[in-house]
Design a protein around this nucleic acid. Structure first.
Lengths: 343, 343
DNA sequence: GAGGCGACCGAAAACGTTTGCGTGTTGAAA
DNA sequence: TTTCAACACGCAAACGTTTTCGGTCGCCTC
């Protein structure tokens, strides 16, 4: 077992000083051609690689991005990470991933853990609990210490920082507008409870679309789901009492669950009822029928977030002063599949 | 913007030495009660936290685990990460994730990047290209430098290290055995190309199950898929020429694709044909019909891998010498859903 | 032969910790 | 008054780098 070789060891072997070795390896003109060759040959032979930790300490830069998300077993978040990782890698950064599991406490602990020098900046999406508590002190604290933060998807306006989002309201509007253009008038909404920011915005988009087309909003057509496990009865009640001819669901899990329950009642999708989901994930693509959905490009979101963070990290001090926080909108588009028909 | 405070700054403010501050914070009896109080109060006020990088450099431990996987947009790998992260977190470790995107080169680059001090050990699953090339020098090199590696799922016997796998052959055998017990005799296999280790093992399990029940193995009933995009024609040909009454697919993507193509031909699942998949992911659970599958507990695999790695990392030197490499088998079980019937 | 210059190299500081050991001050015992 | 613990604290090294600032040659110039 040959341990990693250090500058000091090379210096000792070759009977020169540490600084000479360092300079020789970086091709400094201060060092004679002769010594340079010798050192480089030796370094190559012993496969010398500078120690990242020592470099980080010296440069006060870790070249590492911290990601804090609620869950990773969730196609959308996985695609975002994928997008972040790609851009990060292209720029010589690594990513370190922490999961809050939708818990406020774990989000705080993870942030504090990483904020002590392990990373250069954060990319994060809020946990449900954090959104519910509206307590963002852990984030503002980190920002106050000079560590940049980029929030995506589940954001809050109470924190000043760069953000990457989709226009949830517009996207929802477009989806419902699409249904209306297909001739549906009895359109139900399956959404989250209000404190989930994206759920709320999508709900607003739904309402706006109906209003603009002169369709009255019926509160009974709006189902708010807290917990997917216990959602069945609420959705079944919707079918029973309101007989919608179309459903707009704010995520793909709600969409596929709605389809399953509809099928169970003998309703055919899309012949008897059309369904549109949100978030173009595995489920929408592979379930039968495949689901028409608002595609939210996670790769793009992640990439944009990473780019924003790295840009800020590599900004000169002067620029930093007069740089405003930005909000980047990632465009969405409707992917039409089998779960929608024309009335 | 108040920058992070260091020992040095506290020392200067309080007019004591750095070592006094350090010892006071660690409650050393060397320091008087008085000074201790003063230092701790000051540290608390300014929210002092030791710098992780400096600690890493000193202790030669980063308390960070490197994960290298082919993809993250893949439910199974996401669950594994989730399992790793949980166990790692409980033990005070962070995880840093790198994706090889099934590329040998990227796998090598990522490993080299992390091996230079950034992490204490690796948990990894091989990329397809690496499995194809059978070139593992980057892994053995890392191990030779004294950095522990735990491989999971896509492993190789050419590298000596701890491993976490499922008994792929047995699990496949059980799945096919289940189909046979339901009365099926015309069982097709949709699998990967041979160099993917798990695909090969599952294929062997399929063959064994048939043989043990005296069912002849028909090569035409075995479809090997290289690329999911171009798989349709091969599977369609299978339906056309061999009319299987059941299909065993070695992953859920192959299973759902088979179902889709069957449905397209007018075959009803499970009335006309039964399908069993592998890997219990989102698709199996939510597609219609939901898919009977061999459940491969990613969370458990990840947790076991993390535990093995951490155990080894925290082993004393003496133990380390006579410690053998272990292979841990994670049990699988069949989840029966709607895609299988009794003949 | 003195001064200057360029080529080549080393010492040391710095990043932020921890820790073994040395040292000064005190109080009490002799 | 001397001696010796005990106590409280500081010094310095160490982890592995990079980089600034000198320093020592040898050679050239006048």
């Amino acid at each position: 077992m040959k341990r990693k070789v250090t500058l000091k060891q090379i210096a000792r072997e070759l009977d020169v000083s540490i600084s000479t070795v360092s300079k020789a390896l970086r091709n400094s003109i201060e060092i004679s051609e002769d010594t340079r060759q010798k050192v480089q040959a030796f370094a190559k032979l012993y496969n010398y690689r500078p120690n990242n930790i020592a470099l980080s300490l010296k440069n006060k830069k870790t070249k590492t991005i911290g990601i804090i998300i609620p869950e990773i077993v969730h196609h959308f978040f996985a695609t975002v990470i994928s997008g972040i990782e790609q851009v990060a890698n292209e720029n010589g950064y690594n990513v370190i991933v922490c999961l809050s599991n939708e818990s406020f406490d774990k989000e705080v602990i993870n942030m504090e853990m990483l904020a002590n020098g392990s990373i250069d900046g954060f990319i994060m999406s809020l946990s449900k609990e954090t959104q519910l508590k509206k307590d963002f002190h852990h984030i503002t604290e980190v920002i106050n210490q000079g560590m940049p933060v980029v929030m995506f998807d589940r954001i809050t306006n109470d924190v000043l920082c760069d953000k990457v989002i989709i226009d949830d309201q517009q996207a929802a509007y477009d989806a419902v507008d699409f249904l209306i253009s297909k001739g549906f008038k009895n359109i139900a909404l399956v959404t989250t409870v209000d404190y989930v920011s994206v759920g709320k915005l999508r709900t607003e988009g739904y309402i706006n679309a109906l209003k603009e087309h002169g369709i009255p909003v019926n509160e009974n057509m709006i189902v708010k789901i807290e917990d997917i496990e216990n959602s069945a009865s609420k959705i079944e009640k919707l079918f029973e009492e309101n007989k919608p001819d179309a459903i707009f669901a704010v995520n793909e899990l709600f969409a596929v669950t709605s389809i399953k329950l509809a099928t169970k009642r003998g309703l055919k999708v899309p012949d008897d009822i059309s369904v549109i989901g949100f978030t173009d994930g595995i489920i929408s693509e592979f379930s039968t029928p495949s689901i028409t959905t608002v595609s939210q490009n996670g790769i793009k979101m992640g990439g944009a977030a990473a780019k924003m963070l790295i840009d800020r990290l590599e900004m000169e001090e002067e620029e930093e002063e007069n740089e405003q926080y930005k909000i980047e909108l990632i465009e969405t588009h409707l992917v039409e599949r089998e779960s929608t028909a024309t009335l």
